[in-house]
C-alpha cells in the first residue's frame, strides 16, 4: 500500500493523544478512553541468552526495571528532556521506543489518524524539543509540543491569573498564566524535584545509618510510599539490609528533611513570578496556585508551600490537582482536541 493510499485509508476516525513525557513516568490519555502510565525505563536484552529468557527485544517500565541486570538499561529522559550525549544515539533510540510504546498502549486503530500533543518542560531547549518531536514523529501522523505546566492549567480551564507548580522527577516547572500563552518570562524551571529528593534522602540515610545497604531505586520506592513534610507525619519505618540481614530503620526525620528541601526554591520562584506581575493582580495570583505533577503527592506539601508563601510573600492559597499522574496528559489531550484541523494538517 502506498503512502497516499494509507493516508486515504485513515479517514475513519481521529485519535487524539495527550502525552506527559516525564523523567520518571510517561502517561498518555487518549480520545478512545484509554489512560496508561509507565515508568520511563527502557531495556534491551544484553545478549542472546537474556533475549531467549525474556522473549522480547525490548522491555519497558517496571518490567525493564525488574530485569535490569539482564538488560542494557536506559532512562532516556533527564531533567524532563531526552538525554543527548554527543553522537551516542542510544538514548534517542530508547526515547523513540518509549514514545512508540506509550502510543501503542493507547491502542490506536490502524485506520485512524493519530494527533498527539506532548507536554515538554517549560524551558526545554530547541534541540531538546526537536529531539522529542523526532522521537514521536515515527509513531503519529502529526505532533505538537506544549509547555507542561500550561497543559495542566489548560486542562482545568484555569487560564487567568494562575500560578502552576508542576513537580516532576527531573524538574519543577513554575508557570504564570494570565489569559494567554505564557512566554519565557512567565516560566521558571528548577531541578529541585523528585530525583533531587531521592539524592538528598540517600545522603541523609548514609550519614545517619552508614551500615544500611540500599540503592537509589530502593530509596525512591520508600519515598513514594511515605513522602510527607508535616511535623506530625506518619512514621517511616522500613527494613534495609545490614550485612545481608534485614534490619528496621526509622527514617521519618530524614525523609521529611529531604522532602522539605524543595519548598524554599519553589516559593522563591513563585515570588519572582508574582513580583514581576501587574501589582493590581498580584494578590489574586497568589490566591490561585495549582500544585501538580507526581511530586504533588508528598503529603502536606500544599500546606508547607502556603506556610512558606505566608512568611515570604505575605500569604497564598495552594490547590492540589485531583489527578497528579494524569494532570499533564489530560491537559495535553484537551489542547489536542481544541486545536483546529488546519493546524494539524500543516504539521503533518
Amino acid at each position: 500500500m502506498t503512502a497516499k493510499e494509507k493516508e486515504k485509508d485513515k479517514e475513519h476516525g481521529v485519535l487524539y493523544l495527550g502525552i506527559d513525557l516525564g523523567t520518571s513516568r510517561t502517561s498518555v490519555c487518549a480520545s478512545n478512553g484509554v489512560r496508561e502510565t509507565i515508568s520511563s525505563f527502557v531495556g534491551y536484552p544484553k545478549d542472546v541468552v537474556s533475549r531467549k529468557l525474556l522473549q522480547r527485544d525490548v522491555l519497558f517500565g517496571d518490567e525493564a526495571l525488574k530485569h535490569r541486570l539482564s538488560l542494557d538499561f536506559y532512562r532516556p529522559l533527564e531533567k524532563g528532556v531526552i538525554k543527548v550525549v554527543g553522537k551516542d544515539t542510544r538514548q534517542m533510540e530508547a526515547a523513540q521506543d518509549l514514545i512508540a510504546e506509550i502510543i501503542r498502549r493507547a491502542e490506536p486503530r490502524s485506520d485512524e489518524l493519530v494527533y498527539a500533543v506532548i507536554g515538554a518542560p517549560a524551558q526545554a531547549s530547541i534541540q531538546n524539543k526537536q529531539a522529542i518531536i523526532d522521537a514521536a514523529r515515527k509513531s503519529v501522523d502529526s505532533v505538537m509540543l506544549c509547555s507542561e505546566p500550561f497543559a495542566v492549567a489548560y486542562g482545568l480551564d484555569w487560564l487567568d491569573d494562575v500560578l502552576v507548580i508542576d513537580i516532576g522527577a527531573g524538574t519543577t516547572d513554575l508557570c504564570r498564566m494570565h489569559g494567554t500563552m505564557p512566554e519565557d518570562s512567565d516560566q521558571i524551571t528548577n531541578t529541585y524535584a523528585g530525583d533531587s529528593i531521592d539524592q538528598e534522602f540517600a545522603e541523609r540515610i548514609k550519614k545517619k545509618h552508614p551500615e544500611a545497604q540500599f540503592t537509589i531505586q530502593m530509596v525512591k520506592e520508600i519515598k513514594e510510599r511515605h513522602a510527607a513534610v508535616a511535623d506530625a507525619m506518619e512514621q517511616c519505618i522500613v527494613e534495609l539490609p545490614v550485612k545481608g540481614k534485614p534490619t528496621r530503620f526509622d527514617l521519618t526525620a530524614e525523609l521529611r528533611a529531604a522532602c522539605r528541601m524543595i519548598v524554599p526554591p519553589i516559593v522563591e520562584g513563585l515570588g519572582e513570578l508574582v513580583a514581576t506581575f501587574d501589582p493590581e493582580f498580584q494578590k489574586r495570583l497568589k490566591e490561585r496556585v495549582l500544585l501538580a505533577g507526581g511530586g504533588s503527592q508528598i503529603k502536606g506539601l500544599d500546606t508547607a508551600i502556603e506556610r512558606e508563601m505566608h512568611d515570604r510573600l505575605g500569604g497564598g492559597k495552594v490547590i492540589r490537582i485531583e489527578e497528579p499522574m494524569y494532570g499533564g496528559a489530560v491537559g495535553a489531550l484537551k489542547v489536542a482536541h481544541d486545536m483546529p484541523a488546519e493546524f494539524w494538517e500543516k504539521l503533518k
Binding site: H12, G13, V14, L15, Y16, A30, S31, N32, G33, V34, E107, P108, R109, S110, E112, L113, Y115, Y154, L159, G179, T180, M181, V335, H337, D338, M339, P340, A341, F343, W344
Partner: peptide, 28 residues
C-alpha cells in the same frame, strides 16, 4: 491488534460559538 476506536470520527477543533472562542483560538 484492532485497537480501541476513538470517539471522534472527524477532527474537532474549537467551536466558533464556544465561550471565549477567540482567546482560546489565539492561544492555540
Amino acid at each position: 491488534d484492532p485497537g480501541v476506536a476513538s470517539i471522534f470520527r472527524t477532527v474537532q477543533g474549537l467551536r466558533s460559538g464556544q465561550e471565549d472562542f477567540s482567546r482560546r483560538h489565539g492561544i492555540l
